Computed example of a mutant assay.
Amino acid sequence: MTMVHERTRSVVQTRDFLRDLSRDSSLPESIRLQAERLLRHYPKAADIWLAGRLEERRREELSLLADKHGPLHPALGCWLAADPLFCDESSNSSSTTEID
């Protein structure tokens, strides 16, 4: 099972990989153009880290709300039960480590 910091690192490094592909003149033009098209809408690292911070903050706030007012509505409670999609950059100790 993929850990949240591994998933976050992979998404961030994929952007770098696509950028490298788009600039590699030894590759066919069709590959470089496809990488450029994908990059156009691909999130930047800062956007991924922000998403992770927002998820952590949401969990903290919902936990406080549950502690203060008792059980949450199921629509809110399911957010606490779900694993986060991304993590904050500070939680990602190996953010610059290359994936093997």
Rank of each mutant, 00 (worst) to 15 (best):
residue 30 S to G: 05
residue 98 E to D: 11
residue 70 G to Y: 08
residue 26 S to H: 05
residue 52 G to M: 00
residue 35 A to S: 07
residue 40 R to N: 12
residue 53 R to D: 14
residue 42 Y to M: 03
residue 64 L to P: 01
residue 88 D to F: 01
residue 23 R to P: 01
residue 92 N to E: 06
residue 95 S to C: 11
residue 31 I to N: 05
residue 73 H to T: 05
residue 56 E to T: 08
residue 76 L to P: 05
residue 75 A to V: 15
residue 75 A to D: 11
residue 77 G to N: 13
residue 47 D to P: 00
residue 61 E to M: 14
residue 36 E to N: 07
residue 60 E to L: 14
residue 40 R to Q: 15
residue 62 L to P: 01
residue 84 P to S: 09
residue 99 I to R: 12
residue 74 P to G: 04
residue 24 D to V: 00
residue 33 L to I: 09
residue 84 P to D: 06
residue 25 S to R: 13
residue 86 F to V: 00
residue 41 H to F: 10
residue 88 D to P: 00
residue 69 H to S: 15
residue 37 R to D: 06
residue 99 I to A: 10
residue 65 L to V: 10
residue 43 P to C: 02
residue 71 P to W: 07
residue 76 L to R: 06
residue 91 S to P: 02
residue 48 I to L: 01
residue 34 Q to E: 12
residue 45 A to N: 04
residue 27 L to M: 05
residue 59 R to S: 14
residue 64 L to Q: 14
residue 28 P to M: 04
residue 25 S to E: 13
residue 60 E to Q: 12
residue 92 N to S: 04
residue 27 L to P: 05
residue 84 P to I: 03
residue 61 E to S: 10
residue 97 T to M: 10
residue 57 R to K: 12
residue 76 L to N: 04
residue 69 H to K: 14
residue 55 E to I: 04
residue 86 F to Q: 00
residue 36 E to P: 00
residue 73 H to S: 13
residue 93 S to P: 07
residue 52 G to C: 04
residue 77 G to M: 07
residue 22 S to H: 02
residue 57 R to F: 06
residue 24 D to W: 02
residue 58 R to A: 11
residue 52 G to I: 04
residue 39 L to V: 02
residue 65 L to T: 10
residue 33 L to T: 11
residue 41 H to V: 09
residue 85 L to K: 06
residue 63 S to Y: 03
residue 52 G to W: 01
residue 76 L to T: 06
residue 84 P to H: 02
residue 25 S to P: 02
residue 86 F to T: 00
residue 39 L to H: 01
residue 89 E to S: 10
residue 43 P to K: 02
residue 44 K to V: 05
residue 77 G to P: 03
residue 22 S to K: 05
residue 91 S to H: 06
residue 86 F to A: 00
residue 24 D to S: 06
residue 48 I to N: 01
residue 63 S to W: 06
residue 92 N to G: 02
residue 60 E to D: 15
residue 68 K to C: 13
residue 73 H to Q: 08
residue 46 A to I: 09
residue 71 P to M: 13
residue 36 E to Y: 03
residue 31 I to P: 00
residue 61 E to F: 07
residue 59 R to I: 13
residue 54 L to G: 02
residue 40 R to T: 10
residue 60 E to P: 02
residue 54 L to E: 15
residue 80 L to W: 06
residue 35 A to I: 01
residue 40 R to V: 01
residue 44 K to W: 05
residue 89 E to A: 14
residue 81 A to P: 04
residue 60 E to T: 09
residue 33 L to W: 06
residue 89 E to M: 08
residue 37 R to S: 07
residue 22 S to I: 01
residue 89 E to G: 04
residue 65 L to W: 08
residue 93 S to L: 15
residue 77 G to K: 14
residue 91 S to D: 10
residue 93 S to W: 06
residue 28 P to D: 06
residue 67 D to L: 09
residue 53 R to Y: 08
residue 61 E to A: 14
residue 66 A to D: 04
residue 34 Q to R: 12
residue 54 L to Y: 08
residue 34 Q to A: 09
residue 91 S to N: 11
residue 64 L to G: 14
residue 84 P to Y: 03
residue 28 P to C: 07
residue 33 L to N: 13
residue 88 D to G: 01
residue 95 S to E: 07
